[in-house]
Write a protein that binds this DNA or RNA. Structure first.
Lengths: 182, 182
DNA sequence: GATCACATGTAAGAAGTTACATGATTCT
DNA sequence: AGAATCATGTAACTTCTTACATGTGATC
């Protein structure tokens, strides 16, 4: 059973895993790259870091090369394990239909798995669930009584899902080619 | 200045505007059609309806043709006005980048504007902000140092945004043709 | 008579938002 | 000297989640 944490907490774990950094650094990442829509408000970030620290997933050090007040966080072993558990979670139908941005966040952090096996499993499941989801939307388009706006909105959903579906296929090919080259 | 309400509350206003209905009816809409990801849990719906009632945006009647306990809500004049204000809000860059599902919810409810003028303004702004957003993503792809996963994720975002962009253009044409026919 | 669908609610807790607060260091 | 940036935090509030609670009418 996987520990349940908020998406923001996983985003923080992933970023810290990429490079140890302070709360301030993390806030800037969210503000400047608008990372998938997680707000970098101090009222969200600092309490989340506190929770992660209390749970023993991250540890803060005060680096001695700065004279500014500053605490740099890095992952603990448990932190790495919790992050990996989250990354290895199977992609579900609801993830695809309701939480796509979170899936993309997970995908980015799958770069920490150097074997690419988690990545390939992720993309395969993503691709198949997207296929189902697109079929569902098409059924709804045929069967539900819809206004012109409703039908168009559904068609928009179908179009963007189909783009994501093609992307999932292409991404799989990229990783397969990469694996073959070795 | 527009009254600030939660997205769930606007979703409820829009659905009730479409047809007066009870909390139970509304919950089923969310559960069965998975409407854009708003959960139909009673702990969300009933308090939200209470808030809307207290603010004078909806009113509940007990219909006498049923013997079940049941309260049917309909919009008040103020409720219609608040919904319309929300629908008329200009589409912003952040809406496009961060809150697309909410935009699609608004689009569906724009069917209440029979002149289609709000719809057309909505689609024009959507189209232009999407264009900018796609350009931003392409800049990030060129300029940021990215892992293979990061680059692919960005390309996925570009692909689905381009699909939405094409959709916004096609939807505009649909409404223009419809307008011309009269 | 039991079970399912109808129908509405509350309580506790989690997590985010906005706004405020504070102070040090670096740049102009 | 003053402004901008670095850096961390708290408090009040809002809203959602999960889980529990309750009861009636319809169907088998």
């Amino acid at each position: 059973m996987v520990e349940q944490r908020s998406t923001l907490e996983y985003a923080l774990l992933g970023l810290i895993r990429g490079a140890p950094q302070s709360g301030y650094d993390l806030r800037k990442v969210f503000e400047e790259t608008a990372m998938a829509g997680y707000s970098g408000s101090p009222g969200a970030i600092y309490p989340a870091l506190r929770r992660l620290e209390h749970s023993g997933l991250i540890e803060g050090d005060v680096p001695d090369d700065t004279r500014r007040r500053r605490k740099e966080f890095r992952l603990t072993e448990r932190g790495r394990a919790v992050l990996l558990d989250w990354l290895a979670l199977p992609v579900t139908h609801d993830d695809v239909a309701l939480r796509f941005p979170e899936l993309m966040l997970r995908f980015v952090f799958l770069s920490f798995d150097e074997s690419d096996s988690l990545t390939l499993r992720f993309l395969e499941r993503l691709e198949s669930h997207l296929g189902e989801y697109i079929a569902d939307l098409k059924v709804q388009r045929e069967q539900l009584p819809l206004t012109m706006h409703g039908r168009l909105a559904l068609e928009g959903g179908i179009a963007s899902s189909e783009a994501r579906h093609r992307w999932a296929l292409e991404a799989q090919e990229s990783f397969r080619r990469k694996g073959d080259r070795r």
